[in-house]
Structure formats: C-alpha cells, structure tokens
C-alpha cells in the first residue's frame, strides 16, 4: 500500500545512538524487519536522526555506519537519504 501511494517509511537512527542494551537490540530487530519488507515491496524509505540539537546530527558517512548495523548497504542508505527531496519534488495528483 505504501509502495502504491508513494509513502515513505522512516528508519529512525536516534534510538541507535542514544539507547543501550536490549532496547537498542529491539530497535535493531525492528529496523531489520522493516528493511526486509522494504526490499520485498520496494516502497520508499528514508533515514533520519531526528536531531533536536547539533549534537544529535550525524554525517552521511556516520549514518551509513549506523544503518550497516541492521544490514542496510551504503548505496541503499544514500538512496534513502535522497528520498525526501525526490518525494517533495514529485507532482501528485489531487483526487
């Protein structure tokens, strides 16, 4: 359904940075499951740090290092980073 409507799902990296122990393990499992679905159905995905200050910002290289933790490749990460501009630039039909 998300693939049909061009709705992107977000991989939130903030818990990977801030959580420790089993909460982070749960987030990694959840992201890995979401990645499997994304690869299967091909819906748009995006990666975000949800930064509230400059200390929470991460560079693309660091984001690629974090996404590798749940099996996302570097190319997939770069594609996910380019998703928001691609979606916002797309012209949508109003029903």
């Amino acid at each position: 359904m998300a693939a049909d409507h061009g709705v992107a799902l977000e991989f939130d990296l903030q818990p990977l940075v801030h959580l420790r122990g089993w909460p982070r393990q749960r987030v990694l499992q959840s992201h890995a499951r979401l990645l499997r679905l994304q690869r299967k159905y091909g819906f748009p995905a995006t990666v975000a740090t949800n930064a509230r200050s400059m200390l929470d910002l991460r560079s693309p290289r660091e984001m690629a290092a974090l996404t590798r933790l749940f099996g996302m490749g570097e190319e997939e990460t770069l594609r996910a980073l380019a998703t928001p501009p691609a979606l916002s630039g797309r012209r949508r039909e109003v029903p």
Binding site: V17, H18, R58, R61, L66
Partner: peptide
C-alpha cells in the same frame, strides 16, 4: 575501522 566508526557515532 567500520565497527569503530559505528561505535564512535553512538558517543553522546
């Protein structure tokens, strides 16, 4: 280095 880079990104 890759593991180290990932760990460094989690230092807050």
């Amino acid at each position: 280095e890759a593991q180290m880079a990932a760990a460094l990104a989690t230092v807050t």
